[in-house]
Write a protein that binds this DNA or RNA. Sequence first.
DNA 1: TCGAAACCGGAGCGCCCAGTCCGCTTCTGA
DNA 2: TCAGAAGCGGACTGGGCGCTCCGGTTTCGA
Lengths: 185, 185
Amino acid sequence: MTTVLRADAQRNLDRILEAAAALYAEAGPDVSIDEIARRAGVGHGTVFRRFPTKEALRSAVIRAHLGEMLAEVRGLVDAPDAGKAFVQVVWLAAERCRNDRALFEGIERCSMDPDVAAAKEELHDTFDKIIRRAVRSGAVRRGLDARDVGALIGAAIQATLHAEREDEWRRYVQVVLDGLRPARR
Amino acid sequence: MTTVLRADAQRNLDRILEAAAALYAEAGPDVSIDEIARRAGVGHGTVFRRFPTKEALRSAVIRAHLGEMLAEVRGLVDAPDAGKAFVQVVWLAAERCRNDRALFEGIERCSMDPDVAAAKEELHDTFDKIIRRAVRSGAVRRGLDARDVGALIGAAIQATLHAEREDEWRRYVQVVLDGLRPARR
DNA sequence: TCGAAACCGGAGCGCCCAGTCCGCTTCTGA
DNA sequence: TCAGAAGCGGACTGGGCGCTCCGGTTTCGA
């Protein structure tokens, strides 16, 4: 099925993925294929041979990111303090969204891709375990799942994309994080 | 300067604004002029005679919304309980964003328009008064201004745009609202 | 070394959309 | 009623972008 690519083709493929990830991170998920091809140093025909559509390329990049996040979250799933693990995951996700402008929006948009959907689900399942433990330990309010928390944190980051101050996003994430604790009284 | 429009022209202008507001609310701030013109029942040339650019139309609609919000917020600026007034303003803004998909994103995007910028500033100033009183009364944490709160609430709403459950947004707004209270301990 | 298979990339197509233009229609004030 | 001003809208332009195609080039196993 998956035959080995010729050396030059593999090199170009790597360059394309690298360029796409960089441009998505800098400019959002709507960068044109031409721009990506230019940055990768290839013709845009080459991009379309590897990825039949613009969406396919986006999905591939997003999938890679989700894989990395999953590995990180898995490393925290059995941490002794569930509340701390929860906070750590949130900050990890926030940092990622902050450094990659397309990540949050892109994940939503690529949900029709079955591979992305599967990766997302797996990530959510893992995060849900942490959340449930954190809820049981009284560190997090009831009634929230991984999708809720992801949406809220992602949104807080999005809100700071055009902010003037560089560290704005940390304050916003902290506000949401405080809001995620059990309601008072 | 502002001469009176001919009756038919005024009618068309009203229709255009109405159609634009409706489509922005339904489909976001990137609806094409053609679509707006079609919904308004006019040719798109007519739209461009009233509004020199697509942005001008967007700005006009946004400005109208900001004017309405300003009136609402002004009505709460001298409310006896500053904390309650703050919460009310937040829910008002949230409801508006919820009902108008383009509002939050559109306000950011139209900030170069001087009229929109002025309206925004006036709204912020008014809301800031409420926030300062609420902070003093201990209902809201320090270090936040109207821009912060608006960004956070808008973001929470945006996060629920593609949610399956219809009332998702209320939960999210409540989380942010709780996060906006003074930090514990 | 050499030929076939794999690969490359830019010209070109079709579509969408913002914005312009002008011949025709509609309104309005006298 | 009527002339001229105001308004109308569709044809058209130009630019951007996703995507295709094919003639030329590169790679690599035999």
